[in-house]
Computed example of a mutant assay.
Amino acid sequence: MKTNRSPVISNGLVILFALLFIFPFYWIVTGAFKIQTVAVAIPPEWFPLEPTLQNFADLFKNPVWRWTFNSFFIASCEMIGVCLAASLAGYVLAKKSFPGRVIIFTLFVAAMALPKQVILVPLFTMLADFGWVDTYHGLILPAIGWPFGVFLMKQFAQTIPSELIEAAKIDGCSELRLFYNIVLPLLKPAMGALAIFTFINGWNDYFSQLILTRSTPMMTLPLGVATLQGEYTTPYGVLMAGAAIASVPMIAIFVLFQKSFTQGITMGAVKG
């Protein structure tokens, strides 16, 4: 009797890749409880035999709570702003007919191909002219017009039946009420996926935050932790403690929006 080995092989590969992706996080968490000599020891100590909290004590000698608040506030504002702006723009580009619609959408798609480093110099010059360098709005507002967000929401808005929108208009529904009561609930799975992408992108946007911040109180958590690296020595245990703390909000956001994220990723494949 023949046995089907495909599920066994596929499950084994899934478990193997899952372990490979989880291992860096495991190494960061365990490294946060190791002293410096153990953290850099060769061969490595796979599990801290003498765990210590000294790395966290050294870490919190710095304004970590302020850095954490900055990261959470900036990433959350970007998430809300991108989801709102992208859902409005995506709905208009998908369901409204007006001159230049195709050109505008093409520009959004073309903007996705531009590396952030290309626009950072003119962006910094513009923000400096406005006096927005080293400010919250200077870090948040440029990220709200994220081309990928508009592209994603436009693709999902196309799946909304036009007959449903027309029926709402016949019933006397205004544009804002139509968007808020009908379109927005149908876009929630896509907004859940976009919320996760935006929050992680804003939380990990080290390069832009490095250029646009000047003072220590305005630093974000990834940027602040990076400054703890010395010129001649690197406190790996302290850095791993900071990285472990920095990973907690991203995990929480993913767990919070996990259902919407899964629906948003799979909806296009099911309907396609």
Rank of each mutant, 00 (worst) to 15 (best):
residue 103 I to A: 14
residue 118 V to R: 03
residue 16 L to Q: 03
residue 207 F to A: 14
residue 241 A to H: 04
residue 244 A to V: 01
residue 59 L to G: 09
residue 56 F to P: 00
residue 79 M to S: 08
residue 127 L to E: 13
residue 228 L to Q: 04
residue 151 F to S: 03
residue 144 I to W: 05
residue 268 G to R: 02
residue 178 L to M: 13
residue 37 T to C: 11
residue 73 F to W: 13
residue 4 N to M: 09
residue 178 L to W: 00
residue 250 M to S: 13
residue 182 I to G: 05
residue 193 A to R: 05
residue 226 A to E: 01
residue 104 I to S: 09
residue 4 N to Q: 12
residue 74 I to E: 08
residue 209 Q to G: 10
residue 148 F to N: 08
residue 142 P to R: 03
residue 121 V to L: 08
residue 250 M to Q: 12
residue 94 A to M: 03
residue 15 I to V: 12
residue 163 E to G: 07
residue 252 A to H: 08
residue 148 F to K: 03
residue 101 R to V: 04
residue 195 A to E: 02
residue 12 G to Q: 10
residue 97 S to M: 12
residue 90 G to K: 03
residue 105 F to S: 05
residue 2 K to P: 10
residue 89 A to E: 03
residue 101 R to Y: 06
residue 262 T to D: 15
residue 219 M to W: 14
residue 20 L to N: 10
residue 173 C to P: 10
residue 212 L to Q: 06
residue 103 I to R: 12
residue 75 A to M: 02
residue 115 P to T: 01
residue 140 I to D: 04
residue 178 L to S: 09
residue 181 N to K: 15
residue 220 T to E: 11
residue 170 I to H: 12
residue 190 A to R: 02
residue 147 P to W: 03
residue 28 I to M: 14
residue 146 W to D: 10
residue 30 T to G: 01
residue 48 P to S: 04
residue 37 T to M: 10
residue 197 F to S: 04
residue 256 L to Q: 05
residue 65 W to P: 10
residue 204 N to Q: 06
residue 57 A to C: 13
residue 104 I to C: 08
residue 8 V to T: 14
residue 127 L to A: 12
residue 147 P to E: 07
residue 169 K to A: 15
